[in-house]
Design a protein around this nucleic acid. Sequence first.
RNA 1: GCCGAAGUGGUGGAAUUGGUAGACACGUCGGUCUCAAAAACCGAUGGGCUUUGCCCGUGCCGGUUCGAUUCCGGCCUUCGGUACCA
Length: 854
Amino acid sequence: MQERYNPAEIEQRWQQVWEKRQAYQAETDSDRPKYYLLEMFPYPSGRIHMGHVRNYSIGDVVARFKRLQGYNVLHPMGWDAFGMPAENAAIQHGTHPALWTEENIRNMRLQLRRMGLSYDWNRELATCSPEYYRWEQLIFLKMLEKGLAYKKSAAVNWCPDCETVLANEQVEDGCCWRCDNAVEQKQLDQWFFRITRYADELLDRTEQLPGWPESVLTMQRNWIGRSHGCEIDFPVEGTDSAIRVFTTRQDTLAGATFMSLAPEHPMALKLATAGQRDSVRAFIDKVGKVEKIDRTSEDLEKEGVFTGSYCVNPLTGQQVPVFLANFVLMDYGTGAVMAVPAHDQRDFEFARKYQLPVQVVIQPEGELLDPERMQEAWTGEGRMVNSGPFDGLPNEEGKQRVADFLKAEGRGEPTINYRLRDWLVSRQRYWGTPIPVIYCAACGTVPVPAEDLPVTLPTDVKFSGAGGSPLKSQASFIETDCPVCSQPARRETDTFDTFVESSWYFLRYASPHYDQGPVDRQAVDYWLPIDQYIGGVEHAVLHLLYARFWTKVMRDLDMVGIDEPFTNLLTQGMVCMETRSCPEHGWLYPEEIDAGNQCLKCGSPVTTGRNEKMSKSKKNVIDPDGLIQRYGADTARLFTLFASPPEKDLEWNEQGVEGCSRFLNRVWRLIYEHHELVVGAALPEESSLQGPARDLRQQVHKTIKKVTEDIDGRFHFNTAIAAVMELVNAISAFPGKTEHPEVLKEAFETVVRLLNPFVPHVAEELWQHLGHDQGVDTPGWPAWDEKALETETLLMVVQVNGKVRGKVVVPAEADRHVIEQAALEDSNVRRYVEGKQVRKVIVVPGRLVNVVVS
RNA sequence: GCCGAAGUGGUGGAAUUGGUAGACACGUCGGUCUCAAAAACCGAUGGGCUUUGCCCGUGCCGGUUCGAUUCCGGCCUUCGGUACCA
């Protein structure tokens, strides 16, 4: 055994051993309980960052721990390989996206291997390979058959400079994130997935996901945004048509004194009377020019224009003027709103601005609303007034009654509205899965026959950066024959949103090489659902909602037998670090600052900012490679696990890293100094131990229990590691090392085995030095001996009136009376009890005694 | 505005079911070793005091309880999500 701990040498060696042993390959084995552990797969950007290190360190502890507990663990890794950065790199540097991506994967795979993560690399997949996306195309065809995929014209964010649509996240302050040009709304024919068909199930099943964080479930519920209400028809005066509105407040129907339509509403122009036509046109034009982002901002002034037309309130029969209003959105509800100024703040402001009548129809308890003097709308509860037959009803009950009335009269019906929109999956990009559809002049939109899949992405394309997707000018790709009539036809040139690939990769891992379909049903039935999914909270809605949707689609296609893909979800926090900036040069890297905390370039004093998420733009990043080089992967892993619990943000602290490195060095040295003592020793016999030897053995077993319970389900790795540190401190201080080598041996072996999931390389190395030929994982996870936990005496805290006044040691089996006696005899306790009357003595077994005096 | 999470020493954090607040680590201070330094090791470290011990202390105010970081009510602050959603 070497005197010095040399992480670089031992880590490389053990990684080779594991690889040779194929130690982490998972095989379907119905005789063993399975455990499917998954971390969200990375985009192959080229280098891993600290967020990855944290995510995968957390996952690896769980994977190794579950394996040691005897589970058949599936722990795969792959690449979310399609996406815009590859294409941007192609435009900027001329490298083909495929080569760029491959190179990045190669590099990142090496980085992950250097971390010693226990992946089953035989199951590795990259979503950009035709063997993967061909099955996605097949599922799309099936969705098309079921009406779950469809094409429609929709307004999308369009960057005229890049000639492509942008996802909402790619629009920053109304401008393109890449070229900083203003984003426009453009009407385009786009492919959608009908996720709204699953809105109810996606929402209702959130109640049955106890293993998910409440915050994520709430976000999903809000995103789906189901609201119960009514659709109501307001007949237009002098015509036989009607305007249909959606409302959740049908109880306020009698108070609807005007009507607001979205300027894009199909009836908007038709309703304009001759005298109003010009101003209506001008208003529609004006609103149309405002970007969507401003349109939905809070500071936008509420404006409208009168159409000149009236409709009729179906409850009161009153005449109601019809306005167009800039705050009414065409893509929610029906694009028309019944305006109830007394009970909706927006309508109230609008009514005051245009001097429209305010009619109170809900009176709150203990308050009398006066329409003349109201300063704001009353949106709370109350009793219905001015509502004819409904007067006096509590408004909640009124909702039901008004809905029933409308239905009976044929004027409306109860409806459910969702905030959730269908998922727009078309992208005018090259580096994605081609949408397998052909357009034929005679036959229209024709799906590519399943036997012709995959539609592969052509590789011989040119990237100019202009003219949009290179597929559009790739004749060899576009030109094809119609599968129906064999006449010349054109291929779809749009590709899928990359969220499509990440919606089912976790299913593919069960049988990644299966070539008869997307998944091998047997493998999926064995491995799925995922027992533990781990990733960043930034995916709380998008990816996690899409993945749930896709799983349900595949279930309904009889491809999988599960309803939900992720049983337990852990959303890990961000990795943060302080920022430093100079008034001259902006953000600074630590190496751009001198010892006196001044900028190396200009000498200005450096301002230290607060902890923020690590990002290159703010120069508060740590490069995992450098970290591993300096300290080793084990230290990097240990620090990210020790510094904070996984769901919280992690504050980077170089000194904390050094502390972890120091700890591993201490363990190494301690074992180095004593390993000859313990290598030949037997393991201890419980009964024969006394004093410090017995105490140490007790702590060994207490630590096993604590670490087991901390890891299992709780994921409190920080306290688990702290417990091992305490044990190491106790071993250091143990006076009986030479007298009790057997106790020392058990203690050392326990430390090494407990540390194994966290720092696997050094654990293997030390295990070997403790005289074992086989891996540290061979004996499985250590079990604690209940007998060793038993004590003869207990330390009990004595309180007087709830304040700690003393501590007494009592026999473990002492009864209430004996404990009470001992407590009252304590000299300090006596000072507080003497001369007072003891009212009550509370004894909490094994913990404390509280003497209540007065 | 609404929804969610959080607030504990100089710092990261611990206290699992209402039972010794501050485990573990970082930092700081003092010491040992050394020509010196680093490393390593040992000790101290919430604040205050009349220091065998006492008082105060978990964002603020109140409540329940023998006992509250933990439960309840009301506020304040920070972070995250989301929004003219009718």
